[in-house]
């Protein structure tokens, strides 16, 4: 099948990528751009390991055909840190032990960041609901939930300091 060009913004940089229609956005990220932070788990939209943001919304990149990403803005786990400084959610995951094997972590981080953008003071229940499409087979989720709680409090405190 004929190759085609897909224009997509990934982590703030415009990319012009050569691909085939039957490849996925996940393939584009990992194979064309070597952004291997985003993982493939089930490949069928159940596990959430491949979660990235498209135009700010979390989606399963394994279920997006590469050409469907045309003109969209994609954020992967590699795009969360700013100026070489980890995102507060990433720091909290490290401090609270919110990961073990690490395969689900990039997707978890993306879902957590998406939640905290729309809800700065999430309850435990809304945190659990926000990550319900991200499966973790190691942690039992408690430390992930705690890490997101810690991150939300710290981000709120930082925002309060910044506004003074």
């Amino acid at each position: 099948m004929a190759k085609m060009i897909v224009n997509v913004e990934v982590n703030g940089e415009l990319q012009e990528l050569l691909t085939e229609p039957h490849r996925t956005l996940l393939d584009l990220l990992r194979d064309n751009l070597s952004l291997t932070g985003t993982k493939e788990g089930c490949g069928s939209g159940d596990c959430g390991a491949c979660t990235v943001l498209i135009d700010g919304r979390p989606v399963n990149s394994c279920l997006v055909l590469a050409p469907e990403a045309e003109g969209r803005r994609v954020t992967t786990v590699e795009g969360l840190a700013e100026d070489n400084k980890l995102h507060p959610v990433q720091t909290a995951f490290i401090e609270e032990g919110g990961l073990q094997c690490g395969i689900c972590t990039p997707g978890m981080l993306i879902s957590a960041v998406a939640l905290l953008r729309s809800n700065t003071e999430p309850s435990e229940q809304s945190i659990r609901y926000a990550i319900s499409g991200n499966l973790c087979r190691c942690t039992g989720y408690d430390k992930i939930v705690r890490a997101i709680e810690v991150a939300s409090k710290r981000m709120k405190a930082n925002a309060a300091i910044a506004s003074h």
């Binding site: 939209g45 959430g48 498209i54 919304r57 989606v59 399963n60 997006v64 926000a130 499409g133």
Partner: peptide, 9 residues
Amino acid sequence: VGSHQIQNL
């Protein structure tokens, strides 16, 4: 239906 990720797609 599905997860947030699925609902966004």
